[in-house]
Amino acid sequence: MTADDNAPVPKRRRVLEVMTVVTLSITAVLTAWCGFEASKWGGEMSIAFSQASSARVQAASAEATAQAARQYDLTIYAEWIIAERNGDLDLMSFIEERFTEEFAIAFTAWQDGGRTERGPLAMAEYVPPGTAEAQELSERADSKFEEALINNQRGDNYSLLTVLFALVLFFAALSQAQHLAWRRHTFLGLSVALGVVGIVILATFPVKI
Rank of each mutant, 00 (worst) to 15 (best):
M1D: 04
T2Q: 06
T2L: 10
A3E: 10
D4L: 09
D4T: 09
R14K: 14
L16N: 05
E17M: 11
E17Y: 08
V18Y: 08
M19L: 12
M19G: 06
T20M: 06
V21M: 09
S25Y: 02
T27I: 05
V29T: 06
L30W: 02
T31E: 01
G35Q: 14
G35R: 14
A38T: 09
A38S: 15
A38P: 02
K40L: 11
W41A: 06
E44I: 09
S46C: 03
A48H: 11
F49T: 12
S50M: 12
S50T: 11
S50W: 04
Q51P: 05
A52L: 14
S53Q: 15
R56E: 09
R56T: 12
E63T: 06
T65Q: 05
A68F: 03
R70N: 09
Q71H: 07
Y72N: 11
D73I: 06
I76R: 14
Y77M: 10
W80S: 06
I81H: 00
A83S: 13
G87I: 13
D88N: 11
D90A: 15
M92E: 12
F94S: 15
E96M: 15
E97P: 03
R98Q: 14
F99S: 01
T100F: 01
E101R: 15
E102V: 00
F103A: 03
A104R: 15
I105Y: 12
I105P: 05
A106C: 01
F107R: 04
F107M: 09
T108G: 08
A109R: 02
W110K: 01
D112N: 15
G113K: 02
G114D: 04
G114C: 13
R115N: 12
T116C: 01
E117P: 00
G119M: 12
L121R: 12
M123H: 02
E125S: 08
E125R: 02
V127C: 06
V127S: 09
G130N: 05
E136S: 07
E139C: 04
R140P: 00
A141F: 03
S143H: 09
K144I: 02
F145W: 07
F145S: 08
E147Y: 02
A148W: 01
L149M: 10
N152V: 00
Y158W: 14
S159N: 13
L160E: 07
L161H: 10
L161E: 13
L161V: 11
L161M: 10
V163L: 11
A166Q: 10
V168S: 01
L169G: 10
L169H: 07
F171D: 05
A173F: 08
Q176D: 04
Q176E: 10
A177G: 06
L180I: 04
W182M: 14
R183Y: 11
R183V: 12
H185M: 07
H185F: 11
T186S: 13
L188F: 04
G189T: 07
L190K: 02
V192D: 00
V192L: 10
A193M: 04
L194G: 11
V196G: 00
V196D: 00
V196N: 01
G198V: 08
L202I: 06
A203Q: 02
A203F: 03
A203K: 03
F205M: 08
V207G: 00
K208I: 12
I209L: 15
I209E: 08
